[in-house]
Structures are given as structure tokens and as C-alpha cells.
Amino acid sequence: MDDLGRMDSPIHRIDARAKIIATAAFVLAVMSFPRYEVSALMPLFAYPFALIAVGNLPAGYLLKKVAVAAPFALFVGIFNPLLDRQPMGMIGPVAISGGWFSFASIMVRFTLTVSAALALVACTGIHRLCAGLKMLGLPSPFVVQLLFLYRYFFVIGDEGLRMLRAAEMRSTGARTLAFQTYGTLIGHLLVRSMDRAQRIYRSMVSRGFDGEVRLLRREAPGWRDVAFACGWIAFFAFARSWDLAEFVGRWLSRGPS
């Protein structure tokens, strides 16, 4: 993800704030559709597709991430077809119940919002994203918290995995630990993490840290950035108000007659 965020493309160059605002509007637009809506949501795929395409992001990789996250939505949504059996539409001779529509709608929304979120991160990068959030008013201690969390996740994750490997070698080789071992291992990891926090603090202080972490990011939004946000928001509003899919479908089905 990091590497994706550092690539260069017209989308990467857009101000982080513009992308955050557009994505927030996108998520709101998607969520505001009525629960049985499926086809009218389709035009909205243009947003994640555009980010992925213009940003040169690996679509397969992002798709895999979306799929990994799917089970929860699937779990809660799958009951809809069972519980809502009122017929709502026909495909040829087969009546489709409302539950299936709402289920399909859940899955489509899920795919839309998750892929847009991932694409946003992938075409912005965490530090620009955080800087953008800060400029949009997110409290600075929280922004710093996000940055530190992200930074040390890798360090402590590595440390944890090394300890786990060592523990596995000495045990029966089971993937999961006995509770006793777990407490000791995680406790050790925690103590080490605390020591590390102390050493980081020491190195911050020795470079003049005074409680405030300053980020050097001077992005001034240009007309491109404003156009990006406004253009997409207009598109979302349009797609929300007019069912484009329905228009196209009707136009086609009327065509032959």
C-alpha cells in the first residue's frame, strides 16, 4: 500500500483534501440510496474505477483486499433473502424477492465503499492522507497518533513475529499458543514496546521535541483539486437523483419497438 501511495499519477497529484472530500461524498451518496436499489448504484462504480485506472493502481490486488473483508457483510446480508420473501421483480418467468434485491444492494454498496476507501489510500499514501485530515481539522494529537501507530506497527509486528517463531520452535509447532505461553510472550512484547516508546521519546527530546509534532506539508489546493472534488460531487448528486441505469435500460428496451 505504501508503495502505491508513493507512485505518481494525475490522481496521486490531486490534493489529499480534495480526494478525502470526494470520497466522503461518495460514501454518503452510496449509502443514501434506498435499500432495494441495485442497478442505480452501478454508475457510481465510475469513481473507484477512475481512481484505480488513472492512478495506475493494481485492480486485482485491491479486489483481493475487498474480498477478504466481505464475510461480515455477507453474514448479515444473507438473511435478507430468507426473511424478505415478497416478490419484487421478475427475470423472465422467475420472481425475485425483495430480500434478494436488498441483499444484492448490500453487497454492491459494500464493494463500492470498500474499493473507494482502498483506492483513496492507495492513491494518496498514509502520510499525505493524515496531513490532509489534519488540514481538514482532525485534532493534531489524533493525527500524530495515526502516524506513530502506522510507523511502529511494522517494527512491533516484526518483533512479535520473531518471538512467535522462537516460541513455536520450542513448542510442538502448533500455530496457536497455549494460554500460559501467550501471556508471557505478549507480556514480553508489551514490555519491549514500552521500552521502545521510552527510547523514542528520548530521541524526540534530544531533537527539541516540545509536545508538538510539526508536519511540513504545504499543499495549496489548485483549480484542479477544486474541480476534482466539485466534479465528482456533482456526478454523485446526479447519479443519486437520476437513475442512469434505468434510463439506459429503458432506452434500449424501447429501441426495437
Binding site: 502520510h127 523514542i200 530521541s203 510539526r214 511540513l216
Partner: peptide
């Protein structure tokens, strides 16, 4: 322990900014 900022550049600029 010394490189705690999101990018190399931010890290090197941390001291001067302080």
C-alpha cells in the same frame, strides 16, 4: 527509535522545525 516520522524527509525536518 530515531526515525519515527512518516517519511525520511519529515524525520530530518523534525529537529529544525522544533
Amino acid at each position: 527509535d530515531q526515525l519515527f516520522m512518516p517519511t525520511v524527509f519529515d524525520d530530518v525536518a523534525f529537529g529544525p522545525l522544533n
